[in-house]
Write a protein that binds this DNA or RNA. Structure first.
Lengths: 133, 133
DNA sequence: ATAATTGCAAACACTTTGCACATGT
DNA sequence: ACATGTGCAAAGTGTTTGCAATTAT
């Protein structure tokens, strides 16, 4: 694991355990956000531990929760550049996409016209990937 | 219930039942998308019936599923104009918002550069409402 | 040494299934 | 009459809790 992350974890009062390291590794390798179920299948560990660990990593800011609206929560590293996902309705392939226009202007408009201070947003696109069209 | 909807329901082979009518009424009155739990608290009906009914109405296209990422699925009438939500992280108030720039252009770009045909998207904003800032 | 981490069993919450009965058309 | 809708009990999933044992620092 990268020295930076190790240092950051220690500063958060988090120990460098096998499970913690493996979760971060698995998410680092994965090209798409993973469910608890998937992570569990990759590590020989009790499910309670995974749920607790993900909670810790989420709260400490290492992970982002991603929701594809299918009833399964997914997680990805928060260190990735800001991006959204293209989720294929048919084969469930997931691609990343970076918007040409950010939503930053929209968020500013919302702040002015709705008197609502936007902290973050969730945006995912659903449709058919190249192979499934 | 509006004649239009009654006609539409009948054409879909769906009967005009008390439960069905009440669900549509409740969602019509509500200013925000509702959870199954909330709908159940408003109607004296078995939970199984609600789950089944929402599934039917979703598939028939009368409802949209909305996800605020808190683990609870919410539903709203699909007859509403296309809009997104501003969800307050603190008091959980929900406002509707219509973007000045649609995501239509982005979806076209995605179609060209990613060869991915977008069918729909999910977009919700999270932050602090007027009162909670 | 001691605070953080883990496993296990049990509890919880949400959702679905099978089947018999009831209702709308 | 008959297809659609409903209630009930039970089963399925995903997630959390309490507590005792273990591990990293």
């Amino acid at each position: 694991m990268q020295d930076e992350i190790v240092k950051s974890l220690k500063e958060s009062g988090l120990k460098i355990t096998t499970v913690r390291t493996r979760i971060l590794e698995i998410l680092n390798i994965s090209i798409k956000p993973l469910t608890v179920h998937k992570i569990l299948s990759e590590i020989d560990v009790n499910k309670t531990t995974i749920y607790r660990e993900i909670d810790i990593l989420l709260k400490a800011g290492y992970l982002n929760k991603v929701d594809f609206g299918d009833g399964n929560k997914r997680y990805e590293l928060s260190s990735l550049d800001h991006h959204h996902h293209l989720v294929c309705i048919k084969c469930h392939a997931v691609e990343d996409v970076v918007l040409k226009e950010t939503l930053f202007n929209e968020e500013n408009l919302i702040s002015l016209t709705n008197k609502f201070k936007v902290s973050y947003h969730n945006l995912e696109f659903f449709g058919y990937c190249h192979n499934c069209q």
